[in-house]
Design a protein around this nucleic acid. Structure first.
Length: 908
RNA sequence: GGGGGUAUAGCUCAGUUGGUUAGAGCGCCUGAUUGACAUUCAGGAGGUCGAUGGUUCAAGUCCAUCUACUCCCA
């Protein structure tokens, strides 16, 4: 066996093992009905995206779940893939086209453009999947899926057709969110509301029938005035009631428009008078419909003013706003302009204000809303943290139909053909199918494509081969519903909720209502873990423009994938946003190095024996050679095994990481290994001690493996736990009980009291160390102490561990006495410790310390006495609490007495 | 306007059914370097748990109100 180098170098280890895992097919998901299945579907990143900080945590979590499932012997699958990202990709390709060739997509034509975009995707796409390998992601790469793959596309179109046939899809002329840059409609979920600073324009319009009478109106959008078809007031508003039915002069183009009464007007806002522009505002559109107003669109799809905009025609929309204000002023219609802040919807992708725009679009009316709610409220799907349930339900309660058509070319073209020169809104003039009509010359296909989310909402289904309701595949039968989904809460509506709905409606035959059993069979996943968003140290979102986002691959190079994974996990509070700080992540790297060196120490401590299995290690333990520390560390290991399982099961990933950290660093390295060093030098005791180390290391590697796959695999082999092709993923820790049973079978029975014995000894040593440190002799190895033991049990414990205490506390001798005399000392759990060589004691400092401690103890005594003389407490508190309080008071009193005695002697 | 979240040590956070003297990491201070690890070891200082009120024998933990920051929805 090779000698282990001094410090852990992740680089070589990581690439070596990743290649071996791939070569051995370690990540392959195999349909195996005899084993329990566990699948995780990656949230598909944009095909042209690159790895960012958010991916690191999200994918680490998925990897932990899948690797753990593999260890548990489940038939695990982690399926990766990418999303074609309609708007994002198309914009980037168009941009490049414009910059490099000075052309638009229309110059190329649809077919050629898609070809170009596909080439571009193939060239730049999927980089991110390669980057994930550096993180150690154990995806089954052979099953990688892209949303524009043939099979996947078929599923997407079939879902649309099926929903059409079931009456959930319709076409209509509606107000949609229009992005003037991408020139497409968007769903409500793709619109980001942002507070923006603007102006509120106060104008006055003259009443036609009453010359000289003016109405004041406030607006933030004067450029839409040419589209005004009326002004509206609240019908109950006494100020204006008498004017309803009359008209005002619209300033430009000058024309009389009616004054209507409509209860949608908020009489308290502004002047209580609203200008009604049916083509450019949702509320106005509705008002217009109620009053039979014409819808006059004064804007072009690209955001410039149309010919109907009169004097504003041709101007860009924001320039038109200024021009309109100027015009109003010239006409004497402008009363006042004041700064104003309101909330404006921005296009998620293009980051420009959207325009409400009337257009013909396809919509999906969501099916199975009740069932989608029930799936989560009844616990069939569990959210972690649970509070996201509220957000989810709130959205479902206020759900709006989904605009799924996009005026783009990059995506799944809507599978609808219209009879040429006919009314498209008549269903007989439509052909909705995966295949074109048989007489194509008489038809033309819809030019739009589907929203990208209308493909990714099938992710859990289509990646496993779903192509049509009622049909299934071996993969679907085995892995669906998947075990868990890990994602960010920002896409709870865009993706999570829609996937649930898609599963409920489309997985299985058509059913109007679903039973709980149906729901259980149709949901896409059983659990959803919402990870926090990674922010910078100051809590700002990571963004390119701020330049506050570290490069993930640099971080992997710096800390090692394992170190980064472990570090991220230990700073990721459940469901809270994460403030990223490199210094904190370095803890993960340090931990890996600690593990590395502990293993190295094991290797240097003595020969390696047969470590090939748990029994073979246990067999080497001689029960009669075990000491208290062995018992305690083995007991601790058994407990760690169980808490680890619990934390992983409950998705308490931070607790999982911290539990491993404390046990290994604190209990094992700092105490157990140090305390065992004497025994390692004793030929008689050595082998048992080595076997215990081998046992702890082996089990610990198993527990750590999901979060730190590389280093654990490396050490697994270096320490001889597995042969070359026997990977750590094939082994499981079982339970703490199993471990104890295995030990018991070998006549090793752990005694629970040993754990508290060791804890007391540790505290006792800490007391001596502190005392030495305070008297400036921390480094001396020849200190002599006298102990006034608390009781005979304490004395026996000290006697039995004399050598160990000498070693751990740096003592040359330890005597017992019944009286401390006037020497300075310190209290510990086992009694008072007095230093014999107290040469240079800072009396003043010592008195200060003792006084302070005495004050603290006095408070405890006072509180305890108050409690125990309180009759209601004595009569109502449960016995164990009462008993605890009595004991605490007793101890505090003893401590108080001892402290005051020491204080007296030091002062004399 | 509606709904979440958060408020505990200088910083970032634990603290799961209310119950003995509130924890960790980082940072800070003191000390340690010839055989596992300075990506280390030992020790120390530092908080009364945002504010107020309430429930209870007992509140960081439950309830109410308020304040601050933050996110989502309208």
């Amino acid at each position: 066996m090779a000698e282990i180098p001094k410090s852990y170098d992740p680089q070589g280890v990581e690439s070596l093992w990743y290649d071996r895992w791939l070569a051995a097919g370690c990540f392959k998901g195999k349909v195996d009905s005899k084993r329990e299945s566990f699948a995780v579907m990656i949230p598909p990143p944009n095909v042209t995206g690159v790895l960012h900080m958010g991916h690191l945590l999200n994918n680490t979590l998925q990897d932990i779940m899948v690797r753990r499932a593999r260890q548990e012997g489940k038939s695990a699958l982690w399926l990766a893939g990418t999303d074609h990202a309609g708007i994002a990709t198309q914009s980037r390709v168009e941009k490049e086209l414009r910059q490099k060739q000075g052309k638009t997509r229309h110059d190329l034509g649809r077919e050629k453009f898609i070809e170009t975009a596909s080439e571009w995707r193939d060239k730049h796409g999927g980089i991110i999947l390669g980057q994930l390998r550096k993180l150690g992601a154990s995806c089954d790469w052979d099953r990688t899926v892209h949303t524009l793959d043939d099979g996947y596309s078929q599923a997407v179109l079939q879902a649309f057709v099926t929903l059409y046939e079931r009456g959930y899809v319709y076409r209509g002329k509606r107000m949609v969110n229009w992005c003037p840059v991408s020139q497409t409609g968007l769903s409500d979920e793709e619109v980001i509301m942002k507070p923006s600073k603007g102006s509120l324009f106060r104008m006055r319009y003259e009443v036609v029938e009453l010359p000289g009478t003016f109405l004041e109106i406030s607006t933030t959008r004067p450029e839409t005035i040419p589209g005004d078809m009326a002004i509206a007031v609240h019908p109950g508003d006494e100020r204006y009631q008498h004017l309803i039915g009359k008209h005002v002069w619209r300033p430009f183009p000058r024309a009389p428009i009616p004054i209507v009464g409509d209860s949608a007007v908020d009489p308290v806002f502004g002047t209580g008078v609203l200008k009604v522009t049916p083509a450019h505002d949702r509320t106005d559109f509705d008002i217009g419909k109620r009053h039979g107003l014409t819808v006059l669109d004064v804007m072009n799809p690209d955001g410039t003013m149309s010919a109907d905009a009169g004097p504003l025609a041709g101007l860009e929309r924001f320039k038109a706003r200024d021009a309109a204000a100027k015009l109003l002023d010239e006409l004497g219609a402008l009363v006042k302009v004041e700064p104003y802040e309101n909330t404006v919807g921005y296009s998620e992708r293009a980051d420009v204000p959207i325009e409400p725009r009337l257009s013909e679009q396809w919509f999906i009316r969501y099916p199975k809303i009740e069932e989608a709610k029930r799936a989560v409220t009844s616990g069939i799907i569990r959210f972690h943290p649970e509070r996201w349930t509220k957000t989810y339900l709130h959205w479902l309660d206020n759900i709006q139909d989904w605009c799924v058509s996009r005026q783009l070319w990059w995506g799944h073209r809507i599978p609808v053909w219209y009879r040429k020169n006919s009314d498209r809104n008549e269903s007989i003039n439509r052909h909705v199918s995966l295949t074109p009509p048989t007489d194509p010359q008489n038809w033309e296909q819809d030019v739009d494509v589907l929203d990208t989310w209308a493909s990714s909402w099938l992710w859990c289904l289509a990646t496993l081969g779903w192509r049509k309701p009622g049909e299934t595949t071996d993969e679907l039968k085995h892995w669906y519903p998947t075990g868990a989904l890990a994602t960010g809460p920002d896409i709870i509506f865009l993706w999570v909720a829609r996937m649930i709905i898609a599963g409920l409606e489309l997985h299985g035959p058509e059913k109007k209502t679903l039973t709980d059993d149906d729901i259980r069979a149709r949901i896409p996943f059983k659990r959803v873990y919402f990870n926090g968003i990674i922010r910078d140290k100051q809590g700002r979102k990571m963004s390119k423009s701020l330049g506050n986002s570290p490069e993930p691959l640099d971080l992997i190079a710096k800390f090692g994938a394992d170190g980064l994974r472990f570090g991220l996990l230990s700073i990721a509070p459940k469901g809270q946003d994460i403030l990223f700080d490199e210094d904190r992540v370095s803890q993960g790297r340090n931990f890996c190095n600690k593990l590395w060196n502990a293993s190295r120490f094991r290797q240097m401590s003595g020969p390696m024996f047969d470590n090939s299995s748990l029994p073979s290690i246990i067999t080497r333990i001689k029960a009669e050679h075990l000491d208290d520390d062995d018992f305690a560390i083995l007991q601790g290991l058994a407990e760690l095994t169980d808490t680890t399982s619990k934390h992983l099961e409950e998705h308490e990933f931070t607790a999982y990481a911290q539990g491993l950290y404390t046990f290994f660093w604190g209990d094992f390295c700092d105490w157990y290994v140090e305390a065992s060093k004497a025994r390692l030098a004793d030929p008689l005791l050595r082998d048992t001690c080595l076997a215990v180390q081998d046992l702890v290391l082996r089990q610990f590697l198993l527990l750590l493996h999901p979060v730190a796959p590389f280093i654990t695999e490396e050490l697994w082999h270096l320490l001889g736990y597995g042969a070359e092709n026997d990977f750590i993923q094939h082994h499981h820790t079982a339970t703490g009980g199993d471990l104890l049973r295995a030990l018991r079978d070998h006549a090793i029975k752990l005694v629970a009291s040993k754990v508290s014995d060791v804890a007391q000894l540790r505290e006792f040593v800490a007391t001596i160390r502190a005392l030495k440190s305070q008297t400036n002799q921390a480094t001396r190895r020849d200190t002599v102490v006298t102990v006034i033991a608390k009781d005979s049990a304490a004395r026996t414990l000290i006697e039995n561990n004399r050598d160990k205490l000498y070693r751990m506390a740096g003592l040359a001798a330890l005597d017992f006495a019944t009286d401390a005399g006037n020497r300075p000392g310190m209290l510990s759990v086992l009694g008072t410790v007095v230093l014999e060589q107290s040469g240079v004691v800072d009396v003043a400092a010592e008195m200060q310390r003792l006084t302070k401690e005495l004050e603290k103890v006095d408070k405890v005594v006072a509180a305890g006495e108050a409690k125990l003389t309180n009759e209601t407490f004595v009569s109502k508190a449960p016995p164990q609490i009462l008993e605890g309080a009595r004991k605490q008071l007793e101890e505090a009193k003893a401590k108080r007495d001892e402290l005051s005695r020491m204080l007296k002697t030091i002062g004399s």
